[in-house]
Design a protein around this nucleic acid. Sequence first.
DNA 1: AGCCAGGTTTAAT
DNA 2: ATTAAACATGGC
Length: 308
Amino acid sequence: MKTIINIDTPLNFKSTLDYFSRSDKEIVDLCNDNVYQRVLVVKDRPLLIIVKSVGTVLKPVLDLYVPGCRSARLLSEVEQKVKRIFSLNQDIRPYYREISGDEVLNKLSKRNYGFKPPVTPSIYEALIWAITGQQMNLSFIYSLKARLVIKCGVKFRYNSRKYYGFPTPKELSSISQDELRDMQFSRRKAEYIIGLTRAVIKGDIDLKGLERMNQEDALEYLMKIKGVGRWTAEYVLLRGMGRWGVIPADDIGIRNAVTHFYKYKKQVSGREVRKRAKAWGEYKGCAAFYLLSAYHQYKEKNANRLRR
DNA sequence: AGCCAGGTTTAAT
DNA sequence: ATTAAACATGGC
């Protein structure tokens, strides 16, 4: 089945795809030729979604194709997920007003006009990804993710190509410590992932309930989970729930980006980022994504230059 | 070779 | 209330 999604606020589809394409090891959020593909598990059914942008930044229109889907209800659920992933229900323009006094962000906003922080289909995915991503370099983290996804995620075949979904709690519930170690997760991370997954399955942790909580309560709730510190909780609110008022200020990527664009002489602390982020009000998280995204573009450009 | 990566926990000042 | 060490591996 197929449907068209009309959006009445700006959307830079390409910028979001660029964000998903940061690593060539990415195997869940797939992008090429301005087309986004990903496997979603909706109501226990694995589905491939194919999203194409057929509008403009100012008049965005998305073409959503779900091969094999014959139920209008299911399709409507999928559509909600797509809206979540691309933050279609949030307007980015108030962010531009908020940071209009900041020259650095102003410039980045013009360059990537319409870019919105992407959101994971589930909070669980953001949690597992964040725990996986603690402390290590991005390249290695993407290797870990790929191994986890290939081993535990659903496999989907379409046009003789293989696609993988990010593992659901059920799919991860039977993984053992040793299997995670074999994939080169640290013992600690293996414990965190297993513990979290068990608690979610058992109902001891209610991730859906987080959506109804305010920022402080949600952060507090998440940080009670073993393996979830401040950075992870903040990251999950932003990347996994689209809470634009939150910034994971201790994030090394964000700190590097702030250091670079605000021309500090040495790497700034998370504390310094928080201080600066006060000026970004309820849109700190958006600022973080614009900085990360621009910093990545900058590094890519440098890498290309050095390759010659 | 050694330090730093999308940090957190535990234990010791 | 801060500070240190351990955890794990790859990139530069």
